[in-house]
């Protein structure tokens, strides 16, 4: 017979032993709350992330590119759903989660508050934005909450084509006409710094990180992931002849990493606060879709009820 131990200690012991936490297991309220916030933010990001890309579906330069972009946007919808269903296992209703997005109470990744001005932006999003997201998501495949980890495994499997199709777009443009090359460089110039911001505040300014690491929700710090992303991406830019817009970027033989410049954190916090170029537009688009879909949701329930009644009769 084992001694009854404190629930919280037992919980941490499970985490330390690399055991996954499952929906019906006891968990501290703060763990549940952190997960609800993080997973729902992640889900909202997948859903809102469809908007900047959807902007280019009708104007993709070829049928091949259009089919690819459609498949990618469809994947993002699926990823949103896997994550929403993970949130729901924590006891928060889908309705509440969606309402928090619509009311603006819940956040999503600030990167989607930037506009997609040219076709090259679709390339830059796949290469850089999905590239940065993958770094984070690969780590989350080992997160301590079972349903979140399983959703991440599925998402990572699907996500790798997203990054490759984006890099391919950039690679083709950078071998094209002067105008096309300039378009690719311009997209990189605009998306580079916001992509680095996707990893979140510096470790020194990330107050919840330590607890999330202890609970193994996160496995690597924001700064570690950001550095790995930079080290990988610089080489990829070189291969296609594009220049990273950072004059301070320099290989450091001592650390075997790149030294690089400084993120404009004022811009970061400003966009988080709702003042990015597209915050209002994105929120309005989600609200419009939700409102205009209401009669469809109601009609489906009415139809299901009618059919059930016929079957019973």
């Amino acid at each position: 017979m084992t001694e009854p131990i404190n629930l919280e200690e037992g919980f941490q012991a499970k985490i330390d032993a690399e055991l996954k936490i499952e929906p019906k297991d006891w968990m501290p309220d703060a763990y549940r709350k952190t997960l609800v916030r993080q997973i729902s933010q992640h889900a909202h990001s997948e859903v809102v992330g469809m908007l900047p890309e959807g902007n280019w579906i009708t104007r993709a330069p070829s049928l091949r590119r259009k089919a690819i972009l459609l498949a990618k946007v469809q994947d993002e919808a699926g990823h949103g759903l896997y994550l929403y269903s993970a949130v729901e296992t924590l006891g928060t209703s889908r309705e509440k989660t969606i309402d928090d997005l619509l009311s603006g109470k819940a956040k999503y990744s600030s990167i989607f508050n930037y506009p997609t001005l040219t076709w090259a932006d679709i390339g830059a999003i796949g290469w850089l934005v999905d590239g940065a997201a993958i770094m984070n998501q690969v780590m989350l495949c080992r997160t301590s909450y079972g349903p979140y980890a399983r959703a991440m495994v599925r998402i990572c499997k699907e996500e790798s084509f997203h990054q490759r199709q984006g890099y391919e777009i950039m690679s083709v443009l950078s071998k094209g006409t002067e105008e096309q090359q300039a378009m690719a460089q311009d997209a990189l110039d605009r998306w580079w710094w916001p992509s680095l911001m996707m990893f979140g505040p510096t470790d020194a300014n990330s107050p919840h990180s330590a607890q999330s690491m202890k609970w193994k929700i996160k496995r690597q710090s924001n700064d570690e992931l950001r550095q790995t992303f930079i080290d990988r991406t610089v080489q990829q830019a070189e291969v296609i002849g594009l220049t990273i817009p950072d004059p301070e970027l320099k290989w450091n033989e001592g650390t075997k990493q790149y030294d690089w410049g400084t993120i404009d954190w004022t811009e970061f916090y400003d966009v988080v606060a709702g003042n990015g170029p597209c915050n209002k537009e994105r929120s309005a688009a989600r609200n419009k879709a939700h409102d205009e879909g209401e009669w469809v949701r109601n009609a489906a329930m009415a139809y299901a009820a009618k059919k059930a009644k016929q079957k019973a009769a």
């Binding site: 896997y82 296992t89 399983r150 959703a151 599925r154 949701r297 489906a300 329930m301 139809y303 299901a304």
Partner: peptide
């Protein structure tokens, strides 16, 4: 594999 919402 997971869950989803549907009318029927």
């Amino acid at each position: 594999v997971g869950s989803l919402h549907a009318a029927d």
